[in-house]
């Protein structure tokens, strides 16, 4: 049983990292205002949302399984309070930070029509800080961190997010930027 929990905890963690990465990339694509072939803009928005919710679900599974896993020695306080854990407190604390930010991001995104644009956007910006923290947590805390399959997932994730962010910061990021630039 404990072995199963431990395995599920690790697997869900890696899956969550992959899904968070996909969600970040989709979010950046969404922000650019560009459609993909066969995937209109509103679909990208919906897929971004669904992937993010799936990532959150996997993070939930990851946290819950490890909460019941004696090996992880995780307590309920560790879910909210970072760096107070018993097992590798620093790396686990990063996971707690990312988890709390993720909850805030998801809740404000789902309630954005009620909270207003400013709150929603400000909190959503935190994703750019959350993803690296989650990534470091995965690499530093994960017991699979030395295995090649994990390193492959981590490397692909890092490359994908880096490319997305570099593109995000480029001058021609927004779909209409050429037309809008002419007039400056």
């Amino acid at each position: 049983m404990n072995e199963a929990l431990w395995a599920a905890g690790r697997a869900s963690g890696v899956t969550a990292l992959a899904l968070l990465t996909a969600s970040v990339v989709l979010g950046v694509l969404n922000r650019s205002g560009r459609p993909l072939p066969g995937l209109p803009r509103f679909s990208i928005a919906l897929v971004h949302r669904d992937v993010a919710l799936a990532a959150t679900a996997f993070v939930g599974v990851h946290v819950l399984t490890l909460l019941f896993d004696p090996l992880a020695r995780l307590s309920v306080t560790d879910l909210l309070m970072p760096f107070a854990g018993a097992f590798r407190p620093f790396w686990q604390g990063l996971g707690t930070v990312a988890f709390d930010v993720l909850l805030a991001v998801v809740v404000t995104a789902l309630l954005r029509h009620r909270l207003g644009l400013r709150t929603y956007r400000t909190v959503h910006w935190l994703v750019y800080a959350m993803w690296p923290v989650a990534f470091l947590h995965a690499v530093g805390n994960g017991t699979d961190a030395r295995t090649s399959w994990f390193l492959e997932v981590a490397a692909v994730s890092l490359i994908a997010v880096t490319i997305a962010v570099v593109w995000r910061l480029s001058a021609w990021f927004v779909e209409s930027s050429h037309a809008r630039q002419e007039l400056r």
Partner: peptide, 19 residues
């Protein structure tokens, strides 16, 4: 001008040159 509304309501809306 992100264009989601234009995709969802093509019978009502188009886009200008700035989107």
């Amino acid at each position: 001008g992100r264009g989601l509304c234009v995709e969802l309501l093509p019978d009502l809306l188009g886009r200008d040159e700035w989107g």
